[in-house]
Design a protein around this nucleic acid. Sequence first.
DNA 1: ATTGTTTTGGTACTTTAGTATGAGTGTTTC
DNA 2: GAAACACTCATACTAAAGTACCAAAACAAT
Lengths: 138, 138
Amino acid sequence: MKKTVFVFSALIVSLLILFQLSKYAYAANDISVEIVISSIAIVFFVIGLYINRKATQNQKHLPVPINFKKIEQLGISKREYEVLVQISKGLSNKEIADALFVSESTIKTHVSNLLLKLDAKRRTQAIQKAKDLQILAI
Amino acid sequence: MKKTVFVFSALIVSLLILFQLSKYAYAANDISVEIVISSIAIVFFVIGLYINRKATQNQKHLPVPINFKKIEQLGISKREYEVLVQISKGLSNKEIADALFVSESTIKTHVSNLLLKLDAKRRTQAIQKAKDLQILAI
DNA sequence: ATTGTTTTGGTACTTTAGTATGAGTGTTTC
DNA sequence: GAAACACTCATACTAAAGTACCAAAACAAT
């Protein structure tokens, strides 16, 4: 925050300096108008780049949008998707069963169906494929 | 690509127009120098923002930098890390063994050590933890 | 009300994963 | 050259995952 204030103060000061310089240059007729305008343009272009870069850096992990259409296309049901999410969190079948208040048998059924629909041999492969298909947030 | 060429052409044209306008304004003494400079500054500031936005949009999935220090901190060896990468791709122990030209026993040993070092109960949990620690590229 | 789908759950089974333990080989380091 | 470590591999075991098959209850849609 202090850094931001400092940067903006510096910007304002440099803008004022540019004003004075351009006036002086014009009065003295030393520098052509093209050079003055070009330098100003370049300076503020770079400032625009810099500011935007700082802003996008803070965004960082913009959550990947989940492809709901793909989920539907694959025929993955609501409950199956819930199980898939729990799998990706690293839970065991028993833990998922407890979290969703059903039996482990039920989870096994869901997992088997998921593996079929995702064309995966293992749950780890299912995680990988699901992320590739963007049906799981990374 | 065509779009980029078009945008830059438009930029150059607008720059030339600004030159002429500023000269004319100066000659006619209509507009104060502050307004001319400010408008140029604003225009190029916005252009800087726009260009950078377009550039960062194309990056999109900027690969998350791997935290090598963390790998060292956890005491994960080179070979163990290779196994971890294969696990995250969804391979079985046998498949990893074939990929790395060693026996399945060796992979099991590596996996066991990995689970200890990552404080995970299952390989799926290891994947999750490793990604949280930014040891694995997402 | 019947039909189709989802969700649930069970049994029995095979396969894979993971643990525990020991041990041989090679490399590095002091 | 001994100690420490990484890598390898094996056996024997337990635990978890996954398959196959079946079936009942819940539910929405026609």
